[in-house]
Amino acid sequence: MALCNRSLSAGYARLTSISAHEVLHNNSSIFIRVLGDTPVRISNAHRNFSTQKPVSSRKAVTVINDDGRVGWKDLSAGEKAARTTQQSFNLLLVLAGVVMTGGVATLLYLEVFSTDSKTSHFNRAVGRVRSDDQCQQVLGDGKKIRAFGEASWNKWTRNRPIASRTEKDKIGNEHLYLHFNVEGPLNSGVVNLHMVRRPSEHEYEYRYLSLDVKNHQRIYLENADAEKGDKRATGKLFGVRWW
């Protein structure tokens, strides 16, 4: 009996001594082998999770919160559909922006930078007025002559758009009309411009360019009708051409 008790005590001591134990793991249980003895089963509840994949804690990818950080292969079918929808929408926005930018660029070219734009014709007409000797006599120094749109009593709204219009006659000629104001150190006046472009031509020709200043005679910088009249009268005497 004493011998049996000593064996049990020795076995218990070996069981509780960590340094004398060998821990064996498998997929379902943990065993402790007492050196030199039969393995003793401790628990069936403990499992080895070293071979299991960790559970992902990321948020589900949606159309709103997708930032592209999650790889395509890691997305579920629904998340892939959400990303495809988001990228398609972004592509449509980019295409719409490109179309709008192209439209604005085209409008700027036709209205401002093109040689046939109203702005270009206005700038050339202002340059003609500033450099003309007769205009300088009634308006003052050409460098101090300013041009602007319709006159207004409010100085903050003085630079209004230039009054202009285009129309086409029965035979297909395009007519351009400009009307703007000029002001110099001596006087102020109104400039009227009429240009014509025939169907077979690419550039406008002056019909007339005139300056009207109060209490002064109208000044013509261009007058196609008067030039035609002079050409018709040349070489005629009493209405008969002699050469």
Results as ranks from 00 to 15, higher is better:
1 M>I: 08
3 L>R: 15
4 C>Q: 15
5 N>K: 13
5 N>D: 14
6 R>D: 06
7 S>I: 09
7 S>L: 13
10 A>L: 02
15 L>R: 01
23 V>R: 10
24 L>F: 01
25 H>M: 14
30 I>H: 11
30 I>V: 09
34 V>W: 00
36 G>Q: 09
37 D>R: 06
44 N>L: 13
45 A>Q: 11
45 A>T: 08
48 N>E: 00
49 F>L: 15
51 T>K: 13
52 Q>R: 00
53 K>P: 03
56 S>Q: 08
56 S>P: 00
60 A>G: 06
60 A>Y: 06
62 T>M: 10
64 I>P: 06
68 G>P: 04
68 G>K: 04
71 G>I: 10
75 L>P: 10
77 A>K: 04
78 G>R: 12
78 G>E: 14
79 E>M: 00
80 K>D: 03
83 R>S: 14
83 R>G: 11
88 S>M: 11
91 L>A: 04
91 L>Y: 13
92 L>R: 14
107 L>G: 02
117 S>R: 11
118 K>I: 12
121 H>Y: 12
122 F>Y: 12
124 R>P: 00
128 R>I: 00
130 R>Y: 08
131 S>W: 11
132 D>T: 00
132 D>R: 09
135 C>Q: 02
136 Q>F: 06
139 L>S: 00
139 L>Q: 07
141 D>I: 00
144 K>H: 12
146 R>L: 06
150 E>N: 11
151 A>I: 00
156 W>K: 04
164 S>R: 02
166 T>V: 09
168 K>G: 09
168 K>I: 15
168 K>A: 14
171 I>K: 03
171 I>F: 01
172 G>Q: 11
175 H>S: 13
176 L>H: 10
176 L>R: 08
176 L>S: 09
180 F>W: 06
189 G>F: 04
191 V>K: 09
192 N>L: 12
193 L>W: 01
193 L>E: 10
196 V>N: 10
199 P>F: 05
200 S>C: 07
201 E>W: 12
204 Y>P: 00
208 Y>H: 13
209 L>N: 02
212 D>V: 09
212 D>W: 12
217 Q>F: 12
221 L>R: 01
222 E>A: 10
226 A>T: 02
228 K>V: 05
231 K>S: 02
232 R>H: 13
232 R>V: 10
234 T>C: 08
235 G>W: 03
236 K>G: 13
237 L>N: 04
237 L>I: 09
239 G>F: 12
239 G>E: 03
241 R>A: 01
